[in-house]
Design a protein around this nucleic acid. Structure first.
Lengths: 228, 228
DNA sequence: GCCAATTGGTTCACAATTGGATCACGGAGG
DNA sequence: CCTCCGTGATCCAATTGTGAACCAATTGGC
């Protein structure tokens, strides 16, 4: 008979919580069940829970159950909230990481109709004259490339970036950096990307996209990107 | 059996809305039908709808029905909901894209204390014996590398991936693929990454991480990754 | 224009589950 | 002998799900 079973159970529970046995923000099995599982009286489990409750790792609610107090870092909502503070520089760094790869994927994986959709978005952007409309079509162009990748997760990550970039501070920045000359440059670079996709040339697609993004970075942040 | 069904149903509904199951005209089946479909009392479905109505994803009208408000798949919440269905293969593809780059960033940018934190997590993982604990420390190791990158957005993306991988279907998959032998292999590969970081060698860090992830991919998906 | 069917809104009593609290019992150890 | 701690049991209080009934608004057919 080991001394202080309650303490032992408390530490065992802590480890299992830390290990993620019951997902964060999740519910812990009822005291009665755990008592059976540990082969111990319910009162003893309660003692153990008392300790965990005191140091704040769990919360108990009559009639509902016992819950792990999720640390902020471990919830989707908190993570997304933190993303909303992303700086333009950080964002550009990630775009530079993901989009050339996405363009390469697209060059190998895209179906004919998907390619047509990309060209169509490009064409629409060429014809757009005002800044908000061009902005929207530009984003659509990039998004359709991601839609060719055969990777839903990558597509959703880009979706996320697009939403973040559509929020107020970004919009002002884009407006300030916009000019007719730059719009033409972007269209040319888009054309180069489309050409590479149509040619099914992943490497050229990758480098065309990288070149384009470095241009965007230069215009947006007023400095040279790294030479990748 | 009160097991917080309303919450479960609410998240299920959110996901189906995000996925566009019964869009596009925006109408959701009647409460009575859904109650049957979920095998649950109508009152319970109503509870779930109450939550969705509060956070504005649906609108209800007596005599007409329940409708999706944000038909736009362009909200953060919907995007994240769709991410929850990410397949392991897609996830691994993105990890293979981001983590080697992150390791390279870390090799150049990490502060001494951040490097120490990475080593500490590695050491703890080496000493862990049980599968859930090792799993958790393994994730922590990877996350601390991202924390060295000087890119908050990249860090949060990884956080997001970590949370997704902690959900039920993934957990079972990881458990099945786990073995003592593989744990040792992972530890060795982690060591190689740590060595490269300490040596401040971005290229070696990148390739060590890539090699590690290909091992993980092989074990998790039971096939060879592409030779990058 | 009226009526019936559909659909969300509301309320109620009931049962099941779950944490909260207390008590008597018994063994281990001082 | 006395204290500490786990056991087993009992009862309480809070929450949730169930099933049913009825109301109110909308729609569509007659």
């Amino acid at each position: 008979m080991p001394k202080l079973m309650a303490d032992d159970i408390a530490t065992a529970l802590k480890r299992r919580i830390a290990a993620g046995d019951w997902s964060p923000e999740g519910r812990i099995p009822p005291e009665r069940d755990l008592a059976v599982e540990f082969g111990v009286a319910r009162n003893t489990v309660r003692k153990a829970f008392d300790a965990l409750e005191r140091d704040g790792t769990i919360v108990r609610q009559v009639g509902r159950g016992t819950f792990i107090t999720a640390r902020d870092a471990d919830t989707l909502a908190a993570t997304v909230a933190r993303m909303e503070d992303t700086s333009p520089a950080d964002m550009m760094e990630i775009r530079l990481l993901l989009e050339p790869a996405a363009a390469a994927f697209a060059a190998t994986n895209a179906s004919a109709s998907e390619l047509a959709a990309v060209r169509e978005a490009h064409q629409a952007a060429v014809e757009a004259r005002e800044m908000p409309e061009f902005e929207h079509l530009d984003a659509e162009f990039h998004h359709r490339i991601f839609a060719c990748c055969r990777n839903e997760f990558l597509k959703e990550i880009h979706n996320l970036m697009r939403i973040l970039r559509n929020q107020a501070p970004w919009f002002d920045m884009k407006r300030r950096s916009f000019s007719e000359e730059r719009r033409h440059l972007y269209c040319d670079e888009h054309q180069a990307i489309v050409d590479a996709l149509v040619a099914r040339d992943p490497d050229r697609a990758r480098s065309a996209m990288a070149a384009h993004l470095r241009t965007v970075e230069r215009n947006l942040l007023g400095r040279n990107g790294p030479d990748l």
